[in-house]
Design a protein around this nucleic acid. Structure first.
Lengths: 138, 138
DNA sequence: TGTTGACTGATAGTTACTCTCAAGTAGTAA
DNA sequence: TTACTACTTGAGAGTAACTATCAGTCAACA
């Protein structure tokens, strides 16, 4: 069994967020010790992990609660949960594509700046430099 | 020149967000037409793209403003901008790794549910089923 | 016995949007 | 000329998901 602090460190989630998630009903089987401190079992860690996963991919908290509640209903909701996971996976893959796209831009900018520095050039993209050039031309 | 609506469609960003970003000083050279409507030039689109890129990777708005302001200062800030882009790129790559990690979990869950459905099995991970089994055993 | 440290819930604050709304302007139809 | 539609504006309220602060409880240790 783990304290909230241990879980926070183990899964890299702040204690605040864990309490917030707990209050949101994301950890339905969480127990307390005699001091009313939260006690996370390995099973509870499983719930934390799936919530973390869904959040990382951009699922909102209402939808996460819905998924948790479906789990609690039992086996009759397996098909629906399967669909949620599938569409979540699709969202994650779209996120990846988007990130790759942005990385291209960052790569370009990185090389652009690197080249400017190496060759002591001016930033041709900066409108301020273009203004200066126009001034010089006039 | 593009209207805010056109930019919103072109770059898949809401008009609200574009106005919010504009008010935040992210588009320093934005002009207006005779009706005070915002007019985006191709150069302005460049600013929108870099802001979108930085946000996608999780840069907060204060840091974005800082990057924009460095651009406005001119060539003396190229080294600093280069460093910002480099660390942003690192963050993006970390994000990718994290997403890949979460995709593993989603893959696992997907296969798990798929198998349950195909073979008409019970969800062994669901604590409710374990409780039922314990009940049966007693 | 006093202090330190972990934890609690309640509540306030923050970020980055997101939505609503009244008002201005332009173009077209009647 | 008037009505209607479509687009845009700024101001300001609302929202999601944290994030921080704080007073209070409890156990362990000096």
């Amino acid at each position: 069994m783990y304290t909230i602090k241990e879980v926070a460190e183990k899964l890299d989630i702040s204690e605040h967020t864990l309490r917030f998630w707990a209050k949101s009903g994301f950890f339905p089987f969480l127990t307390r010790d005699k001091n009313n401190f939260r006690l996370f079992s390995d099973e509870d860690l499983g719930w934390v992990r799936i919530v973390k996963c869904l959040r990382k991919v951009g699922t909102d908290n209402k939808s996460i609660k819905r998924y948790i509640d479906l789990c609690l209903v039992g086996d009759s909701t397996i098909a629906e949960r399967y669909n949620i996971i599938k569409s979540t996976k699709k969202k994650a893959l779209d996120e990846m594509d988007e990130l790759k796209e942005q990385l291209k831009m960052l790569d370009y900018k990185e090389n652009y700046y690197k080249n400017l520095i190496k060759n002591h050039l001016q930033d041709e993209w900066n409108p301020l430099n273009n203004m200066k050039k126009e001034k010089q031309a006039s």
